[in-house]
Simulated assay, not measured.
Amino acid sequence: MQALGTTSISMISRAKSFYELLKFRLSFLVAFSCGFGYLLGNTGTVDWAHFLWLVLGGFLISGTSIVINQITEKEYDKLMTRTQNRPLPTGRLSVNEARQFAVLTGLLGFGILVWQTNMLTVVLSFVSMILYSFVYTPLKRVGPIAVFVGAIPGALPPLLGWVAATGSITYEAMIIFGIQFIWQFPHFWAIAWVADEDYKRAGFKLLPSGGKQDLNTAINIMIYTLFLLPLGLLPTYFGLVGITSGVIVTICGVLFLAQTFSLMKDYSRRSALKIMFGSFIYLPIVQIAYLLDKV
């Protein structure tokens, strides 16, 4: 009986480790953005079963990319305080187990998309996974060009959702892609600022302007945040959504931008943290506002 109990605890522990590999919150945010694009692009009655399959497929493919990222960066994760307790650096899971898990989640994710969506959605999802796992990840040790490359798969989920709903890439799809693409820069750089010591230990070079926590980097963050103000109004301008969401998005953009001025003033980790958390709040509020105000 005791052996059975020990086995059950071990199985639960391993299941928890596989769950950690998926980085649920990040994968959920990707799936949420994918669902947002689908609902915004849908013009008829929403097929909720189709919607849920799309979200699940997006979640699994995002999880696959994240697992591959952790396999590639296992030795670097050991060097960083924020990642050294992940399943691979601690040895709770082996690299081979993680590879098998990535194959399983990837096959399930792509299988769902092939079954429930269209070939363009599947191809774009594959491109997103390749860019994130095999281009962005190694570029993190090369220089800040990694942020530009990483912003592409980071911004593809809403476009994928739109394509799943409409079957084509339209200018509206490119607008919602553009908003999330530009958002990636203050988001990435705020995280890189907060985790600067950890990233340096691992050899990651993500901050712009020579990789320093200085005024030039803070100005870069401010400029990209500023771009979100006109971009956020494009869905209203083109009649995709109403004026109410335009007002909400502008207010959110101004508040987000205001946080960057503190960083330009004191270059502190605290100010960078505010921008980081502000970026997490900005995107879902904007997307929900668009959906509620869809014309």
Rank of each mutant, 00 (worst) to 15 (best):
F101W: 12
G167Y: 10
R99L: 15
M11P: 02
Y224C: 09
Y267S: 01
M129E: 09
P153N: 07
N42W: 05
I191G: 09
K74T: 11
T45M: 08
Y38W: 00
V194A: 06
L21A: 01
N220K: 14
I130W: 14
I179S: 10
F18Y: 15
L107F: 14
V295C: 06
L263I: 07
K265N: 02
P144K: 08
T64H: 03
T170D: 13
I251Q: 02
L255K: 11
N220S: 15
L113M: 14
K78Y: 10
V123C: 13
E73M: 08
N69D: 00
A49W: 02
F110M: 09
S125R: 05
W115D: 13
Q180N: 10
I71Q: 03
K16E: 09
D196H: 14
I169P: 08
T166V: 08
V122H: 05
G58K: 08
G203S: 12
P158I: 11
L263P: 04
G37A: 04
V95F: 11
K212A: 13
S94D: 05
L207E: 12
F204T: 12
D77I: 01
L52P: 04
Q84C: 13
F256M: 15
M222K: 12
N220I: 14
A98C: 12
L233Q: 11
L228F: 10
T217R: 07
E75Q: 15
G109A: 04
W193C: 06
G5Y: 04
G242W: 12
V46G: 06
I9S: 14
W53A: 01
L26C: 00
A173E: 11
S62T: 01
K265D: 06
K23G: 03
A218S: 14
M11G: 01
A165E: 03
I9P: 04
N69R: 03
T6V: 15
K294L: 09
D214Q: 00
N42S: 01
Y290S: 05
I251T: 09
L131D: 00
V122L: 12
P138K: 01
M174L: 15
F261S: 13
L104V: 14
Q184P: 09
N216K: 15
S33G: 06
G91H: 08
G143K: 02
T64Y: 00
A258W: 08
I61P: 04
G109P: 08
D293G: 05
V142S: 10
L131M: 11
L233G: 09
M80H: 04
S33M: 02
Q84E: 15
T217H: 03
R99H: 13
V103R: 11
L226F: 14
Q100D: 14
F148G: 04
G154C: 06
Y237W: 14
Q184W: 09
G154S: 05
G35P: 04
D198H: 13
G232S: 13
T260C: 02
V122G: 02
F24A: 06
V95R: 15
M276F: 13
V127R: 05
M1N: 10
Y199F: 13
C34R: 11
T137H: 04
G111E: 01
L231Q: 02
F32V: 05
K205Y: 14
W162Q: 10
